[in-house]
Protein backbone atom coordinates (compact mmCIF):
# COMPACT_ATOMS: atom_id res chain seq x y z
CA UNK A 1 0.00 0.00 0.00
CA UNK A 2 1.25 3.49 -0.87
CA UNK A 3 0.77 6.71 1.11
CA UNK A 4 -2.79 7.89 0.54
CA UNK A 5 -1.59 11.51 0.35
CA UNK A 6 1.65 11.48 -1.67
CA UNK A 7 2.02 7.96 -3.10
CA UNK A 8 5.25 7.16 -1.20
CA UNK A 9 5.48 3.33 -0.96
CA UNK A 10 7.14 3.48 2.50
CA UNK A 11 4.12 3.81 4.77
CA UNK A 12 4.44 3.82 8.56
CA UNK A 13 0.81 3.81 9.67
CA UNK A 14 -2.54 2.44 8.60
CA UNK A 15 -5.15 4.62 10.28
CA UNK A 16 -7.95 2.21 11.10
CA UNK A 17 -10.39 5.04 11.84
CA UNK A 18 -10.06 6.59 8.38
CA UNK A 19 -8.56 3.80 6.23
CA UNK A 20 -5.62 6.10 5.34
CA UNK A 21 -2.07 4.86 4.83
CA UNK A 22 0.59 7.51 5.54
CA UNK A 23 4.33 7.78 4.97
CA UNK A 24 6.58 9.31 7.64
CA UNK A 25 6.49 12.89 6.36
CA UNK A 26 2.72 12.92 5.72
CA UNK A 27 2.07 11.33 9.13
CA UNK A 28 4.18 13.94 10.99
CA UNK A 29 2.46 16.71 9.04
CA UNK A 30 -1.00 15.25 9.79
CA UNK A 31 -0.35 15.18 13.56
CA UNK A 32 0.98 18.72 13.66
CA UNK A 33 -1.91 20.02 11.52
CA UNK A 34 -4.45 18.26 13.70
CA UNK A 35 -3.04 19.74 16.93
CA UNK A 36 -2.98 23.21 15.37
CA UNK A 37 -6.60 22.67 14.28
CA UNK A 38 -7.57 21.76 17.87
CA UNK A 39 -5.78 24.84 19.20
CA UNK A 40 -7.72 27.05 16.76
CA UNK A 41 -11.10 25.29 17.09
CA UNK A 42 -11.05 25.30 20.89
CA UNK A 43 -9.41 28.76 21.08
CA UNK A 44 -6.70 27.37 23.36
CA UNK A 45 -4.21 30.17 22.72
CA UNK A 46 -4.42 33.94 22.63
CA UNK A 47 -1.73 36.13 21.08
CA UNK A 48 0.71 37.14 23.80
CA UNK A 49 0.04 34.11 26.00
CA UNK A 50 2.91 32.72 28.04
CA UNK A 51 2.28 28.99 28.08
CA UNK A 52 3.83 26.81 30.75
CA UNK A 53 4.29 23.25 29.48
CA UNK A 54 4.15 20.56 32.17
CA UNK A 55 7.22 18.76 30.84
CA UNK A 56 7.91 15.30 32.26
CA UNK A 57 10.18 14.22 29.42
CA UNK A 58 7.68 11.58 28.30
CA UNK A 59 6.21 11.31 24.82
CA UNK A 60 3.05 13.34 25.47
CA UNK A 61 4.68 16.37 27.09
CA UNK A 62 7.58 16.45 24.63
CA UNK A 63 5.10 16.36 21.71
CA UNK A 64 3.08 19.15 23.34
CA UNK A 65 6.23 21.27 23.67
CA UNK A 66 7.41 20.47 20.13
CA UNK A 67 4.14 21.47 18.44
CA UNK A 68 3.37 24.49 20.65
CA UNK A 69 6.87 25.72 19.83
CA UNK A 70 5.67 26.32 16.24
CA UNK A 71 3.38 29.04 17.66
CA UNK A 72 6.38 30.45 19.57
CA UNK A 73 8.45 30.54 16.39
CA UNK A 74 5.68 32.65 14.82
CA UNK A 75 5.90 35.04 17.84
CA UNK A 76 2.28 34.27 18.76
CA UNK A 77 3.10 32.96 22.24
CA UNK A 78 5.99 32.58 24.65
CA UNK A 79 6.74 29.22 26.27
CA UNK A 80 8.24 28.15 29.57
CA UNK A 81 8.27 24.71 31.19
CA UNK A 82 8.31 23.03 34.57
CA UNK A 83 9.38 19.49 35.40
CA UNK A 84 8.31 17.91 38.66
CA UNK A 85 10.83 15.55 40.25
CA UNK A 86 8.73 13.28 42.44
CA UNK A 87 11.78 11.55 43.88
CA UNK A 88 11.57 8.05 42.40
CA UNK A 89 14.97 6.35 42.34
CA UNK A 90 16.12 4.69 39.09
CA UNK A 91 13.21 6.22 37.15
CA UNK A 92 12.65 9.96 37.36
CA UNK A 93 16.13 11.30 36.68
CA UNK A 94 16.13 10.10 33.06
CA UNK A 95 12.96 12.07 32.32
CA UNK A 96 14.29 15.15 34.16
CA UNK A 97 17.52 15.06 32.12
CA UNK A 98 15.60 14.72 28.85
CA UNK A 99 13.32 17.63 29.82
CA UNK A 100 16.38 19.80 30.57
CA UNK A 101 17.90 18.95 27.16
CA UNK A 102 14.67 19.84 25.30
CA UNK A 103 14.39 23.16 27.16
CA UNK A 104 18.04 23.96 26.30
CA UNK A 105 17.53 22.90 22.66
CA UNK A 106 14.60 25.30 22.28
CA UNK A 107 16.07 27.99 24.53
CA UNK A 108 13.09 28.24 26.86
CA UNK A 109 12.85 29.13 30.54
CA UNK A 110 12.66 25.89 32.53
CA UNK A 111 12.42 24.90 36.19
CA UNK A 112 12.82 21.54 37.84
CA UNK A 113 10.88 21.44 41.11
CA UNK A 114 11.24 18.51 43.49
CA UNK A 115 8.78 17.14 46.01
CA UNK A 116 11.72 16.98 48.43
CA UNK A 117 12.46 20.71 48.19
CA UNK A 118 8.78 21.68 48.25
CA UNK A 119 7.35 19.31 50.85
CA UNK A 120 10.44 17.81 52.49
CA UNK A 121 9.66 14.26 51.35
CA UNK A 122 10.10 12.16 48.21
CA UNK A 123 7.56 9.77 46.74
CA UNK A 124 9.93 6.90 47.59
CA UNK A 125 9.88 8.02 51.24
CA UNK A 126 6.08 8.35 51.21
CA UNK A 127 5.78 4.79 49.92
CA UNK A 128 7.80 3.58 52.93
CA UNK A 129 5.11 4.92 55.28
CA UNK A 130 2.83 2.21 56.64
CA UNK A 131 -0.51 3.92 55.98
CA UNK A 132 0.10 5.58 52.64
CA UNK A 133 -2.87 6.06 50.30
CA UNK A 134 -1.14 4.74 47.17
CA UNK A 135 1.42 6.58 45.06
CA UNK A 136 -0.97 8.03 42.46
CA UNK A 137 -3.03 9.95 45.06
CA UNK A 138 0.01 11.88 46.29
CA UNK A 139 1.68 12.26 42.91
CA UNK A 140 -1.43 13.79 41.29
CA UNK A 141 -2.13 16.28 44.07
CA UNK A 142 1.51 17.37 44.62
CA UNK A 143 2.20 17.68 40.90
CA UNK A 144 -0.92 19.79 40.27
CA UNK A 145 -0.05 22.09 43.17
CA UNK A 146 3.59 22.50 42.10
CA UNK A 147 2.70 23.12 38.44
CA UNK A 148 0.03 25.67 39.33
CA UNK A 149 2.37 27.51 41.69
CA UNK A 150 5.17 27.52 39.09
CA UNK A 151 2.75 28.95 36.51
CA UNK A 152 1.97 31.88 38.78
CA UNK A 153 5.61 32.48 39.68
CA UNK A 154 6.75 32.32 36.05
CA UNK A 155 3.96 34.63 34.87
CA UNK A 156 2.27 31.98 32.70
CA UNK A 157 -1.22 32.67 31.40
CA UNK A 158 -1.90 29.04 30.38
CA UNK A 159 -0.74 25.59 31.50
CA UNK A 160 -0.45 23.04 28.67
CA UNK A 161 -0.58 19.36 29.58
CA UNK A 162 0.02 16.33 27.38
CA UNK A 163 -3.40 14.70 27.84
CA UNK A 164 -4.17 12.71 24.70
CA UNK A 165 -7.35 11.20 23.18
CA UNK A 166 -7.01 7.99 25.20
CA UNK A 167 -6.58 9.91 28.49
CA UNK A 168 -9.63 12.05 27.78
CA UNK A 169 -11.89 9.16 26.70
CA UNK A 170 -10.82 7.14 29.76
CA UNK A 171 -11.69 10.09 32.01
CA UNK A 172 -15.10 10.52 30.37
CA UNK A 173 -15.96 6.83 30.74
CA UNK A 174 -14.52 6.49 34.28
CA UNK A 175 -16.50 9.43 35.58
CA UNK A 176 -19.65 8.31 33.78
CA UNK A 177 -19.35 4.75 35.13
CA UNK A 178 -18.71 6.08 38.65
CA UNK A 179 -21.60 8.54 38.38
CA UNK A 180 -19.20 11.38 39.11
CA UNK A 181 -21.12 14.22 37.46
CA UNK A 182 -19.00 16.83 39.22
CA UNK A 183 -15.79 15.59 37.60
CA UNK A 184 -17.59 15.21 34.25
CA UNK A 185 -18.18 18.97 34.18
CA UNK A 186 -14.44 19.62 34.53
CA UNK A 187 -13.17 17.77 31.45
CA UNK A 188 -12.56 19.29 28.04
CA UNK A 189 -9.91 21.01 25.95
CA UNK A 190 -9.75 24.07 28.18
CA UNK A 191 -10.37 24.19 31.91
CA UNK A 192 -10.93 27.47 33.64
CA UNK A 193 -11.44 27.88 37.37
CA UNK A 194 -13.34 30.65 39.10
CA UNK A 195 -10.38 31.00 41.47
CA UNK A 196 -7.95 33.33 39.74
CA UNK A 197 -5.00 31.62 41.46
CA UNK A 198 -5.61 28.61 39.19
CA UNK A 199 -4.13 29.19 35.75
CA UNK A 200 -6.21 28.10 32.72
CA UNK A 201 -5.28 24.56 31.62
CA UNK A 202 -5.24 23.50 27.98
CA UNK A 203 -4.90 20.07 26.30
CA UNK A 204 -3.61 20.55 22.73
CA UNK A 205 -3.21 16.76 22.13
CA UNK A 206 -6.76 15.95 23.16
CA UNK A 207 -7.70 14.60 19.72
CA UNK A 208 -4.52 12.56 19.08
CA UNK A 209 -4.58 8.83 19.97
CA UNK A 210 -1.81 7.82 22.39
CA UNK A 211 -0.33 5.31 19.94
CA UNK A 212 0.03 8.02 17.28
CA UNK A 213 1.90 10.26 19.74
CA UNK A 214 4.33 7.39 20.36
CA UNK A 215 4.77 6.93 16.62
CA UNK A 216 5.22 10.70 16.15
CA UNK A 217 8.15 10.97 18.59
CA UNK A 218 9.85 7.90 17.09
CA UNK A 219 9.29 9.15 13.52
CA UNK A 220 10.58 12.61 14.44
CA UNK A 221 13.46 11.10 16.42
CA UNK A 222 12.60 13.20 19.47
CA UNK A 223 14.36 12.12 22.65
CA UNK A 224 11.75 10.96 25.16
CA UNK A 225 11.66 8.89 28.35
CA UNK A 226 9.96 5.58 27.49
CA UNK A 227 9.58 3.75 30.79
CA UNK A 228 6.89 2.60 33.16
CA UNK A 229 6.58 4.18 36.60
CA UNK A 230 7.67 1.57 39.17
CA UNK A 231 4.66 2.49 41.29
CA UNK A 232 2.16 2.00 38.47
CA UNK A 233 -0.63 -0.22 39.67
CA UNK A 234 -3.64 -1.84 38.06
CA UNK A 235 -6.14 0.95 38.49
CA UNK A 236 -9.76 1.50 37.51
CA UNK A 237 -8.40 3.71 34.72
CA UNK A 238 -6.36 0.74 33.47
CA UNK A 239 -9.42 -1.50 33.47
CA UNK A 240 -11.48 1.09 31.59
CA UNK A 241 -8.62 1.58 29.14
CA UNK A 242 -8.49 -2.17 28.42
CA UNK A 243 -12.23 -2.26 27.66
CA UNK A 244 -12.08 0.79 25.39
CA UNK A 245 -9.07 -0.57 23.48
CA UNK A 246 -10.80 -3.92 23.04
CA UNK A 247 -13.90 -2.20 21.64
CA UNK A 248 -11.67 -0.02 19.47
CA UNK A 249 -10.35 -3.07 17.59
CA UNK A 250 -13.76 -3.74 16.00
CA UNK A 251 -15.00 -0.14 16.17
CA UNK A 252 -12.00 2.08 15.33
CA UNK A 253 -13.91 5.38 15.56
CA UNK A 254 -15.23 4.73 19.07
CA UNK A 255 -12.74 6.98 20.89
CA UNK A 256 -13.62 9.92 18.66
CA UNK A 257 -17.37 9.31 18.93
CA UNK A 258 -17.09 9.16 22.74
CA UNK A 259 -15.21 12.46 22.74
CA UNK A 260 -17.63 14.13 20.31
CA UNK A 261 -20.64 12.88 22.29
CA UNK A 262 -19.18 14.27 25.50
CA UNK A 263 -18.42 17.62 23.87
CA UNK A 264 -22.07 17.87 22.76
CA UNK A 265 -23.44 17.38 26.27
CA UNK A 266 -20.73 19.18 28.23
CA UNK A 267 -22.50 22.53 28.43
CA UNK A 268 -25.73 20.87 29.56
CA UNK A 269 -23.77 18.97 32.22
CA UNK A 270 -22.16 22.19 33.43
CA UNK A 271 -25.52 23.96 33.60
CA UNK A 272 -27.09 21.20 35.67
CA UNK A 273 -24.23 19.81 37.76
CA UNK A 274 -21.46 22.37 38.20
CA UNK A 275 -20.82 22.96 41.88
CA UNK A 276 -19.80 26.27 43.37
CA UNK A 277 -16.83 25.86 45.66
CA UNK A 278 -15.86 28.29 48.35
CA UNK A 279 -12.37 29.56 47.60
CA UNK A 280 -10.42 30.14 50.77
CA UNK A 281 -6.69 29.97 51.37
CA UNK A 282 -4.70 27.17 52.91
CA UNK A 283 -3.65 28.40 56.37
CA UNK A 284 -0.29 26.66 55.94
CA UNK A 285 0.89 27.44 52.39
CA UNK A 286 -1.54 30.09 51.14
CA UNK A 287 -2.60 28.10 48.07
CA UNK A 288 -6.32 28.05 47.15
CA UNK A 289 -8.22 25.60 49.35
CA UNK A 290 -11.81 24.56 49.90
CA UNK A 291 -11.03 23.71 53.54
CA UNK A 292 -8.62 24.96 56.20
CA UNK A 293 -5.73 23.11 54.54
CA UNK A 294 -5.24 22.50 50.83
CA UNK A 295 -5.14 18.86 49.75
CA UNK A 296 -1.31 18.82 49.50
CA UNK A 297 -0.82 20.22 53.01
CA UNK A 298 -3.45 17.88 54.47
CA UNK A 299 -1.52 14.94 52.95
CA UNK A 300 1.72 16.22 54.51
CA UNK A 301 0.08 16.59 57.92
CA UNK A 302 -1.34 13.08 57.62
CA UNK A 303 2.07 11.66 56.64
CA UNK A 304 3.74 13.37 59.60
CA UNK A 305 1.30 11.58 61.88
CA UNK A 306 2.18 8.13 60.50
Amino acid sequence: MDCTKCGNPNVIIKKEQSGQYLCKDCFIESIEKKVIKTVRKEKLLDKGDKVLVALSGGKDSVTTLEILNSFRELNIIDICAVTVDEGIDNYRQDGVDIAIRHAERLGIEHRVVSLKDTYGITLDEIMQKPNHRGSCSYCGVFRRTIINKAAREMGATKIATGHNLDDEVQAIMMNYLEGNTDNLTKLGAKTESEAEEFTVKIKPLREIPEHEIGLYVVAKELEVHFAGCPYAQQSFRGEVSDVINKLNEAHPTIKYSTLRGYDKIKNALKDDFKKDYSHGRCVKCGEPAANKLCKACSFIEELKGD
Binding site: M1, N10, V11, I12, I13, K14, Y21, K24, K59, E210, H211, I213, G214, L215, V217, V218, A219, F226, A227, G228, C229, A232, Q233, Q234, S235, G238
Partner: peptide, 24 residues
Protein backbone atom coordinates in the same frame (compact mmCIF):
# COMPACT_ATOMS: atom_id res chain seq x y z
CA UNK B 1 12.88 1.82 9.03
CA UNK B 2 9.43 2.39 10.57
CA UNK B 3 6.87 0.06 9.00
CA UNK B 4 3.22 -0.95 9.49
CA UNK B 5 2.42 -4.14 11.38
CA UNK B 6 1.07 -5.84 8.22
CA UNK B 7 4.67 -6.00 6.91
CA UNK B 8 5.89 -9.53 6.11
CA UNK B 9 9.13 -10.56 7.87
CA UNK B 10 11.86 -11.77 5.49
CA UNK B 11 14.90 -13.99 6.01
CA UNK B 12 17.71 -11.98 7.62
CA UNK B 13 15.51 -9.06 8.71
CA UNK B 14 16.14 -7.15 11.91
CA UNK B 15 12.79 -6.40 13.54
CA UNK B 16 12.77 -3.86 16.35
CA UNK B 17 9.71 -3.37 18.55
CA UNK B 18 9.72 -0.13 20.54
CA UNK B 19 7.39 -0.07 23.52
CA UNK B 20 5.72 3.34 23.57
CA UNK B 21 2.92 2.75 26.08
CA UNK B 22 3.34 1.36 29.58
CA UNK B 23 0.54 0.17 31.80
CA UNK B 24 -0.63 1.69 35.02
Amino acid sequence: ELVIEDTVINDGDEIKLIQIIYGG
